[in-house]
Design a protein around this nucleic acid. Structure first.
Lengths: 198, 198, 198, 198
DNA sequence: AATGAATGAGACTTCATTCAT
DNA sequence: TATGAATGAAGTCTCATTCAT
């Protein structure tokens, strides 16, 4: 039989990850069975195992996909070269997160929460999560440096420490949105403006 | 061994939850088997099932226990009647969290992370988490009101929105501490002071 | 502690068997747990095991009790010395069975059905059932002999074979009553009169 | 081994039911474990559960199979269009039952007894048993009507009531055969001829 | 004698993965 | 390559019975 094209393989892989994601959004990593994924993907067991050697590998792929939303933040929201006020940066990030969460295919912030828990006992997922979050936080450090340049933040502050705080708002927002529900980028931003230096 | 006292039952229950907690800290809710818990508790399967009707019930108890650390924060750190500066309140909270996390018996912030993920597909855990976090956040709203009274925070801000932000620092701290590791109450507090109004 | 009186022991035993019977009527021998019986009897596990060494022994006692309804038939319905027409004998038996089945404490014909099934794999129950039914059938043989004496049944018939048939009506009645429900002593007796020699 | 034919599935199912039947013949429904059935079938646990979702479903299938012997009676013994004397009909039925019982694979009258007991607490089995027995009894009603046509049975009798009695002989025969053993179609038929109108 | 918590073997069932077709 | 039936280790939970108090 002819080898399938590389694009075909990539498309199939994406199809499987997408199917698996919808399962994980609803049931979490551990209650999602390979049979669930196989049924949702419309493929056969053998086909799925042709793309992912094990459930663990598939879990890593789903976690990777969900956490890669961070790359988008990186590329679009925080990429600007102009000085970016911290409150403004956060506002953009939160809006972007909600936009991503509401895309069809399931709220990937739910997958991110699963990934946080999974990272604690799965070194591969830990590696992915830590890598992504370190990158995002370093971008916040850049924001902090610019804010120091224009005096919004004291010049003697450590930008890495400031970045910890700025980054730290994000999981706080995601968690409250998923568990308590009564939070929006607007309400959170309003609170931020009341609390942050500006 | 019949006719045991109520305290005996309470102690046994605590013994089981403690054993289960150490398992969950290491392996998460789903990789922890009842056999693991049974072995760690030193009891028999039947005895454990005499106290918890199902694994689900035991999971809820562990989640409840871990999330009840919030009650301690409530009772000690945030209880003071004197005006409490938001940065000071957060500093106390973070120190307290680290103190709790380092207690023997396992880092319960790891269990909290598990509980966040579990809440998404387990209504009982969701109920527990949402209840605890709503209480904690309402305490932060109180802090915000006091801060408005002494002018630290603008008088026209909505204290509930401010509370969302103050509360939001906490999961941000916990997550960075567990996934990235390079964060301490001191570093975070320093960043906070640079960023917060004061 | 003083030994309890013999009557006390007998009463307790009866109390346990009665409790167990109500369980078996509803759930059968195998779905009835010792915990069910213990709860229904109002005694403790230890107490119940003081009277019955094992579940098997209790099952045998329940089966014995239920199948001993046959002794009552024996003593009352079929005891008469006067000639007893077969159809009349069966009519009396069926009426008696329904009367017993409707006594408070649960329909023991349901227990009898359980005992038939249990007898196939439990030699003790088999012994009890076979003994009781042999006795009842020998009484039907007596009825047959009397019926031969007054010419209702051909004189050259084997009364034991006739007894097989007369006895055989009884489980047929019990089974139809429990499984199909649409049968009464009256309807069955009417059918009998149409079919039997008289 | 994918893409198996429908016949393959049917054959596998029959293989499992046959294995289960031999277990049930010896030990009854409740003492038969799934492990017993799995071992007897020569398949794996997963394979068996691929055909039967639960033990309950398998029990229903075994009960159905055993009670479907009635369909054979229906098709062969009682199907004749010619007038059929009740005593003759019963004689044929009893002979057929013994023939079936002695087939290799285990005496299914033992399974029928189990099914009677199980029907009392299992609505699915009750449904099967009641359905089969209602059909068989309606066939006996037909026999009764023919017997009325040729005067063997009084014309004013209710054929349904007569059918209750004719049907009622059958469990009486089965039960005596299994519990007392000392009964044959010949002895029972001889008794019948002595007792029945003819 | 009575209690009932504790025991632990064993029941039922699931599910990640393989491999003959 | 693709299929999906089959595998079997391992998971959750039950329950007859015991025995320290």
């Amino acid at each position: 039989m002819p080898k399938v094209s590389e694009e075909h393989r990539v498309a199939r892989r994406a199809q499987i990850v997408a199917a698996a994601r919808t399962c994980v959004v609803e049931q979490g990593f551990h209650k999602t069975t390979m049979a669930d994924v196989i049924a949702a993907s419309g493929l056969s067991a053998g086909a799925v195992y042709g793309y992912f050697k094990s459930k663990e590998e598939l879990v890593a792929a789903i976690a990777e996909e969900a956490l890669s939303a961070v790359d988008e933040l990186f590329a679009t929201v925080l990429a600007a070269d102009e000085p970016l006020h911290p409150a403004m940066a956060l506002e953009r990030v939160l809006n972007y997160i909600v936009a991503i969460a509401e895309r069809p295919g399931g709220d990937i912030t739910r997958v991110a929460l699963q990934a946080w828990a999974e990272a604690l006992r799965n070194p591969v997922v830990m590696e992915i999560a830590a890598g992504k979050y370190r990158m995002l936080r370093s971008r916040f450090a850049e924001v902090a440096r610019r804010a120091q340049a224009d005096g919004t933040i004291p010049a003697d502050a450590d930008p890495e420490q400031v970045a910890q705080v700025l980054f730290g708002f994000v999981p706080g927002f995601i968690l409250q949105r998923l568990l308590l529900g009564d939070i929006t980028p607007e309400s959170y931003t309003a609170g931020l403006r009341a609390v942050l230096r500006d």
